[in-house]
Amino acid sequence: MAFEPNIVGFLCNWCSYAGADLAGVSRIQYPTNLRVIRVMCSGRVEPAVVLSILAEGADGVMITGCHIGDCHYIDGNLHAKRKYELTRRLVEKTGLKTGRLRLEWVSAAEGQRFADLVNDFTEQIRELGPSPLSGTTPDLGLLLKVRAAKAAAEGFRLRALVGKEEKTVTDGNVYGEEVTQEEWDKVMTESVETEYSRHRIHIALTEAPGSVKELSEKLGMGSQAVLEHIVALRQLGWVDVQEIRGTSPVYVTMEVPQ
């Protein structure tokens, strides 16, 4: 049987959803693989939701919003872009193909463009093949990574950073200084790496308590880096030492504060 991708699409109420309606009104044909979720604004689509959809085994996620400058909510789409960027960074970390994601702008007048987009994205996903997380035997290792990415996306730090990005990079910071995209990206890159790694460790420890060495081997992270994350996680109260086995402290997860 031929591979039929499962694609989830988030469409903003004001432009993209209307554009999709227009495609219908215009009877423009496109593949059936897309399942649409209507949201009022593309800016509502948070990285954690996208990541959980991917974890559930969807083959692709598409987000569409108003063109830049056209947003019904002034600049919700700019936030959508920032959030998408974070999602993409996190997906990249997991090793899942970033081609399974797409963000596009579709206006209420672009029925054809919407249909073309669906065609194109479906084809793209078809080429990528089924998600390793789909079906009855998902890649469990990858699944843990995606879950870590999702948890990272849910955390305050990344949510806060992405929430502040647009305003700060555009209007300058609270000191009235200019903050370049490069500067912000540098912080984002570091923060994504940190948060993702910490959740990787945390999830691995939820599966089974382990030592720095074991975690290092299991996660393919340098042991020094693992220890540094463990230090931070202990500070947060997420993990603690369960016992000392030989010369290795064995860490275990604690209940995570909300």
Partner: peptide, 17 residues
């Protein structure tokens, strides 16, 4: 401190002897 008072090696978090 970072290791809560247990002496650990910074490279791998093992207890040094």
């Amino acid at each position: 401190g970072p290791y809560r008072g247990t002496v650990l090696r910074p490279s791998d978090g093992e207890l040094p002897r």
